[in-house]
Write a protein that binds this DNA or RNA. Sequence first.
DNA 1: CGTATCATTGAGCTTAGTCAAAAAGTGTGG
DNA 2: CCACACTTTTTGACTAAGCTCAATGATACG
Lengths: 241, 241
Amino acid sequence: MSTRALPNSSSSKSHCRNLLTKQSHPLRSLDQIAALTQFDRGREICTQGTPADLWYCLISGAARRCVIRLDGRRQIVDLLLPGDPFGFSAFDEYDSTIEAIAAGTVVASYPRRRVETLADSDPQLAREIRQIAFIALSRLQTQLLILGRITALEKVGSFILEMAERLSAGKGNSVALPMSRYDIADYLAVSVETVSRSLTNLKHRGVIKMAGARTVRIVDRNALEDGEPRDQLGRIDLAAA
Amino acid sequence: MSTRALPNSSSSKSHCRNLLTKQSHPLRSLDQIAALTQFDRGREICTQGTPADLWYCLISGAARRCVIRLDGRRQIVDLLLPGDPFGFSAFDEYDSTIEAIAAGTVVASYPRRRVETLADSDPQLAREIRQIAFIALSRLQTQLLILGRITALEKVGSFILEMAERLSAGKGNSVALPMSRYDIADYLAVSVETVSRSLTNLKHRGVIKMAGARTVRIVDRNALEDGEPRDQLGRIDLAAA
DNA sequence: CGTATCATTGAGCTTAGTCAAAAAGTGTGG
DNA sequence: CCACACTTTTTGACTAAGCTCAATGATACG
């Protein structure tokens, strides 16, 4: 199966099967009917306006869910990380386009009709799908709350926290961002320059440390949460410039 | 009739039963197990952080779904209009607080466990619930796209269009907004003053007409869509000041 | 008819967008 | 391995959109 379908060399296929069994994901019970596909950076996984015949789950890598506006601007409506289901639509067509961000992003796909039929006779599966939809709702709501923040600094701050949460499952204080500044900008609805400046600002204030351009280490979690620099006791620290 | 539970006076109850049968809504098939409640303006329908034991559907009036931030600012995550289902949560507690906006807002509520059990043995119902979740997703996405707009003028413009769409089902060009400028501001994540100024701007440019403070008549649909004033042929009209 | 809420308008200031350019990576082919 | 092209990231200067504070009109409601 090439881009579309991953090349049929057994090696890559088995490699992916391994991934599928290793990476826990919400549609685990459907592993048998999953098709695995690998995508290069920037490749479209599915396209806004085409028939929504497949449901997906991102296995490894990262992807962006975006819509293009009338004025040509792109908005990223969701960032997809390992374990995230996507491709659900209230209507018969996808409501957004999904593109791979990381090289070699692997995606599992499930024929929608097939799954729905299975769900008809399997209440447990039906509940799982419902749960998946609710999780997608809560992810969208999280982003809504980020977009609703006032200052760009707060947006970038909560973005870092969200990524840390989702990528390292809350464990470490270090996040390797898989996406470019442009992606972050279109996700937060600010300009690239502002993203960059906000990061430098946080860096200078000692709230984060950078290792290369894409690895962030969180130093002061509280400060990221509301934009205000805090001391160890969580008090707003007016000394920090 | 007071707020909490509708007093069991047969008059008010039958009045509401009428509403329930008249107003088409997505959980129609569950009318039998629905409880109807009426709320005064500003009253809480359900509260963030409390057990999410009920699913709801708004029958008449309007409500806001909001979260309060650490800094005390309120953000409105969704506006609920007749026919809109709400109260779904990925976890065991509501992720937002819902408050009535209009006087005498009527809401149908459904015990979640009961519905889920019914869905286990009724695949059709299970599909309907899924569809409801997907529709909620698409509504959130719509708002995400509005929040992602750059200028306040565009936000207010698409807000008016969205309300026109949802309230009058696309028919008329006149919308009676059920909410205050403050609600609009918290929904669009801009200040009240900016909402007001944007409306005056649109009014002065002849894009909309106002009848009182809360009734908007759309004059130039195209202009609302992208912020640019258009002539009858849809061309950007630089003459309009 | 008074009081509270809601809506509009003005003036000043801050934030972030735009345009422009430099610096730092990344990958490719010779 | 290096040179070159291209992308990504950062920084600077300028400008404008929108926030804040403040005050004045309108509306609704008891």
